[in-house]
Computed example of a mutant assay.
Amino acid sequence: MNFIFLYFEIAAFIYGLIYYKHIKKTKFAKLVWLIGIVVLAELIGTYQRRVLHVPNVQVYNIATLIEFILYGLIFTEVFGSNKWSWFSKYFVLAYPILWLINITLIQGFQVFHTYTMSLGSFSMIIMACFYFISIIENEEKIDLLKSGSFWFATGILIFYSSDIFNSFFLRNTHKINLFNGFTLFKLINTVLNIILYSCFIKVFHITKERIQKETNELVQYSIHN
């Protein structure tokens, strides 16, 4: 039960790799490698904790830094020339600096960077909200269910808003043991991860379908001209 979320992460990564030739020239190419970094960090962290019995917090400190930067870069491409792109651009520049200050002068590298983790999480929520605001402001009709950006922003918003609520407002869930040390907190976190990576799989599928359709249309146009 502890590793169900990891299976979804691996499934999303494999799906992204299988169709990477369709995705590599789109804004979501970075998402494939982001998921790969997450999977690698989870595997290394689990090995350190369960086999080597050594602290694994440094791995997650570095992995989450890279994760947030890549999310910010993806949102920047999602926004494009949209007026809300300023936030993601400033975030990508400022976050590594704040992270470095935190781990060197405030919390240190030997504990999890909760301060900058919370900052990154709140920033993801803000970027996702900006995306939905931009949809409302856009007069052009968009089929959201066929939009990779929609599923990307939806997964981010659900995951990080719920994760923050779970971490800050439902703190006792750590103490509620469901079975064999599997707490209510872990259950909620597992469900959130399943939702997030299911959304990412949807992103890859939609992007792959769109690129295939555009390629087929281009071929048909070439044939008839």
Rank of each mutant, 00 (worst) to 15 (best):
K21F: 14
W84T: 13
I201L: 04
K21N: 14
Q220E: 14
H53V: 10
F109V: 14
S88I: 07
I195N: 09
V57I: 11
L43D: 05
L98N: 06
Q48E: 10
I164K: 13
N172Y: 08
V219C: 09
E42A: 09
V32Q: 02
L93Y: 11
Y115W: 11
K141N: 11
C129A: 12
E9Q: 15
I156V: 05
Y131D: 04
H174Q: 06
P96G: 01
V92P: 05
S222H: 13
I158K: 00
F8H: 09
A128W: 02
Y95R: 05
N2K: 13
T46C: 04
F68C: 03
F112M: 14
Y71E: 08
T116Y: 03
V78Y: 07
V219L: 11
I44G: 04
C129G: 05
L119C: 04
F165G: 04
I194A: 03
V32A: 03
T114Q: 14
S121A: 15
V38L: 11
L105W: 07
Y7V: 15
I142G: 06
Y20M: 08
R49H: 14
F165I: 10
I135G: 08
N193D: 03
I142W: 00
N138Q: 15
T76F: 10
L119Q: 06
L65H: 12
L93F: 05
A11Q: 04
E137Q: 05
I201T: 13
L93G: 00
V51T: 09
E9V: 11
N193E: 15
K21V: 13
H205G: 08
F132Q: 05
E217F: 03
